[in-house]
Write a protein that binds this DNA or RNA. Sequence first.
DNA 1: TGGCTCATTTAAAACGTTATAAACCCTAGC
DNA 2: GCTAGGGTTTATAACGTTTTAAATGAGCCA
Lengths: 347, 347
Amino acid sequence: MADTPKSSTTGTRLKSGKPTLRTIADLTGFAVTTVSRALGNAPQISAETRKRVHEVAAEIGYLPDRAAQRLKTGRTNVICVLLDPHEEILGYGFSLMHGLAKALQDTPYHLIVMPNFIDGANIDAVRHIVRNGMADGLIFSRTEPFDPRVRLLLENGFPFVTHGRTEFTTPHPYVDYDNFSFAYEATKRLIARGRRKPMIILPPKRMTFSQHLLHGFMTAVREAGVAYEIPDEIDLDCPVEEIRDYMSRRAGQPGAPDGFACGGEVSALATITGMSDHGLTLGLEYDIVAKRTSKLLSQIQPKVETIYEDLTDTGEQMGRVLLARIAGDETTGMQVLLKPQISFTAV
Amino acid sequence: MADTPKSSTTGTRLKSGKPTLRTIADLTGFAVTTVSRALGNAPQISAETRKRVHEVAAEIGYLPDRAAQRLKTGRTNVICVLLDPHEEILGYGFSLMHGLAKALQDTPYHLIVMPNFIDGANIDAVRHIVRNGMADGLIFSRTEPFDPRVRLLLENGFPFVTHGRTEFTTPHPYVDYDNFSFAYEATKRLIARGRRKPMIILPPKRMTFSQHLLHGFMTAVREAGVAYEIPDEIDLDCPVEEIRDYMSRRAGQPGAPDGFACGGEVSALATITGMSDHGLTLGLEYDIVAKRTSKLLSQIQPKVETIYEDLTDTGEQMGRVLLARIAGDETTGMQVLLKPQISFTAV
DNA sequence: TGGCTCATTTAAAACGTTATAAACCCTAGC
DNA sequence: GCTAGGGTTTATAACGTTTTAAATGAGCCA
């Protein structure tokens, strides 16, 4: 029974617009509620009803109206990524998104990107998103030890995952790269190659991972008892020209560093260029160990030793964690620390 | 009159949840309809009503519910960007998005990104978006002369802008870089520097801009009457190692090219690396003119001559055109061709 | 005063979905 | 044969907005 299309019992509506629950209801003879339940795999629906509804839905290519679902349930099915202007460099943001999109494949979630132009102003974006319920979850990076964004989100119980740690006593989900180990190993490597005055080029100090890098660097130089240097005029966020100019200036002065731990590929390039202004050659007068996140450094001469950070994987992990978090899971692997593979690929 | 908050005339609802039209209605004493009209700046509302409603709305921080608006109007306020896997390189996608976001600032539109992993499969994504009304407008690149995506969108009257041209007789909105001029000028430059066998490294042939580049290159070599070479085993989409290997192989053979017009920075790097395998030095045995879209090439030694393509500007223009298109404007600057600045910055 | 227009404001319906609660049917139990 | 109850299904009411059509009231002219 209820198998022949009842054309217009509940409402005349076969105008072949976008198919809706009502379309399926009319086609199968069931009520809209039943159809909704059948598609949502609710428990109280009989197996054959469920089957029939799914068949018809597939046949007419029904897709639920996101706006209606959202209005009714309050859930948006949107994951929002906050991007800083500095994340453009070498496709950082893109790699992360690539990984995220992978994790979100075959879920109802969409990825929406909110670029941010004013540095550090994205606390406002966070507030806006939380307050207006613009997304079900949030992703961002460049965390600081006492990050106001994290505080705000924790207070509101809003699901999020950061790339990078904070120092809040309330734990929160994050995925981070072990920058301590990176800096430690990179510096040890420089020293092992005979360098006696390493320098590290850091991100702006306010960010947590800058501290981690510094800590790793300091641990290595102290263990070895060598001299060291930390530039205070430049950081990884500086325009590349500034880094190059600084390196060039410093290389011309007495007691210049002879080994460089670079947190990014671009700063490594800038270092090479700056040093070459004084005829200094990589591998002869100085060495570099850099963090690698793209294929780029492998293409220049001379070869640079690197340690890899897989940002696509990072993004994927973040997506996984966020989905679990949104689903209400409070426990499973909410804090991920990705260990560097120490292999010094000098491709 | 109607100034004191009528607490529960129409419905008891001051539970201080998210403010809605109803909240403002209750607060001002107007009907929901009136409030909606006042905020939407409809013509038939008296000036003082409009003013009062706006005041209260601002005071309680009212923001319209996107889902409800979308459900009612059918408009999504979403612009969707399709990203190809190859667009990761050097932040192509990011720069474009950056520009787009600039253009979309202070509009109700959001930017949503749909990354695409299977090469060329994003016709399905387009179909999905059109069919399900997932966005109000679409942005994509890597167009082909008879691009099925463009055909589909034109047929459905769906607003879109491409980065790159097609060859459809029905014109459609695009923003493109004049790749003919780029290749022509780059090749002329190589010849002017005394090179007698230029090579051009092209994107995959199926894409329109590959043809433009080829055409520019061929025009220059024919005008000068010099020999030339076009590699058929590699293109700009190849992994960088392949390009390098190819260059290395070719450099070792007789009659190797002595000038390279590179459509991208990475291929320029790969060329330098490949040539150096045979002890050949840029500027001595051979020259390169490359298209520059980032700050990257300026950081390597030796310096490479480049012609700049501003992708952020491209994105901004695309956003501008798309907004006009969505607004129903059929005419204004729907086809933008950005001319290269010929200045050969060898930074 | 009655009828007309014009300027405002309003009530009611709709968009497509889900949640709540009520209805239905069949079988089992007394 | 009537009631109870489980397994299904359904009607109805929301969610917050915009749209359509109707209502209100003031001003104007006859």
